[in-house]
């Protein structure tokens, strides 16, 4: 187990290094740089001076080693726009928003999907089951940004129940935080809920055909006990195998939906910096987003062994 963990962590580090390096060099191979777009036509001399100041006049490999060293020291550089805000600071502000959003989305999605999955497994073949199945496929087919827009139109623009956009930190009170995040969290959580609900349904149906379930039932246990302690618990194992994919969907959703609700999280920072060709921020955002993904994969792998003691690496 320890050996597996060490190997897995090493692989994760290599993956992140490879992504950061590939992105770094590809950004420099592709023609067109932000300074050129900003200044070259207006004032070539100023453009050269700015390049020298930012170290962009150096050969790519020099820039690379400098960037790598700084990154290892925990310094991701500065934005090339505005007041040259440090990338660290931008990300430190953005990360809690993205994590808040993902966390809330996950809670909502888990509650919905467990209820829906268990109900539709128990009522297999009825109209209720068909409706749940249809909604689940719908949840996977709807673009999350569109779901977000529709939620804004219904609950913010027409009903005035909730704020349409923006973010309020948890330190300013629970309700402002919650009311800003609930709509984006539903938009982000929908595909996650859909996957888990379908998975719980089929896993519960599979487990309910096992001998030990028949044994449990024949020795007179209540239906409730059979469903929750025997069936559901064993049905969780295959569900956790899709957790990795579901988590990935959740994070991807957050990256997109933040842009609909104008929440300055990691996703919005990343997309805005790509649109502005603000390289230091692009690199920093990609690094952190990659880190989040790789760390989640690692966590899910470890979770397998906790839930299913039969799995030993």
């Amino acid at each position: 187990m320890t050996q597996f963990l060490i190997r897995r962590i090493l692989v994760s580090i290599v993956v992140i290094w490879a992504v950061a390096t590939l992105v770094f060099f590809m950004l420099r191979i592709v023609p067109g740089d932000p300074i050129g777009a900003m200044l070259s036509d207006v004032d070539p001399a100023a453009a050269e001076a700015l390049r020298a100041k930012l170290g962009l006049d150096q050969p790519a490999y020099v820039q690379y080693f400098r960037w790598m060293l700084n990154t290892l020291r925990g310094d991701l550089g500065n934005s090339i726009y505005g007041n040259n805000q440090p990338v660290n600071q931008i990300i430190a502000e953005a990360l809690p928003r993205t994590l808040s959003l993902s966390f809330l989305a996950m809670i909502i999605a888990l509650v919905i999907s467990f209820t829906a999955g268990i109900v539709s497994a128990m009522k297999k073949g009825t109209w209720l089951d068909h409706i749940v199945t249809f909604i689940a496929i719908l949840g996977l087919s709807m673009p999350n940004f569109w779901l977000g827009i529709m939620l804004i139109i219904i609950f913010a623009v027409n009903l005035h129940w909730l704020p349409a956009i923006g973010y309020s930190p948890l330190s300013d009170g629970f309700w402002p935080w919650f009311s800003h995040l609930i709509l984006p969290a539903i938009a982000v959580g929908a595909p996650f809920a859909a996957i888990i609900a379908r998975m719980i349904r089929s896993a519960m149906l599979e487990v309910s055909r096992e001998d030990y379930i028949r044994t449990a039932r024949s020795k007179g246990l209540s239906a409730r006990s059979v469903i929750f302690t025997h069936t559901l618990r064993n049905a969780l194992i295959p569900v956790i195998t899709v957790m990795g994919i579901a988590f990935a969907l959740l994070m991807t959703g957050a990256v997109v939906v933040e842009n609909v609700f104008a929440i300055k999280g990691l996703g919005r920072v990343m997309i805005q910096s790509i649109l502005n060709r603000d390289y230091p921020v692009v690199q920093g955002a990609i690094l952190i987003v990659s880190l989040v993904f790789v760390a989640t994969n690692l966590l899910v792998d470890i979770l397998y062994t906790v839930v299913d003691p039969r799995i030993r690496y």
Binding site: V15, A18, V19, V23, M26, L27, V30, G32, A248, L249, M251, T252, V255, V256, M270, I271, I274, V282, I286, V289, S290, F293, V294, N297
Partner: peptide, 21 residues
Amino acid sequence: VDLQWAFPNFIIAVYLVAVFG
């Protein structure tokens, strides 16, 4: 392939658009 597999397809596409424009 494993490198790509570590990330959702959409995120890979965003990374590549960041690079290609």
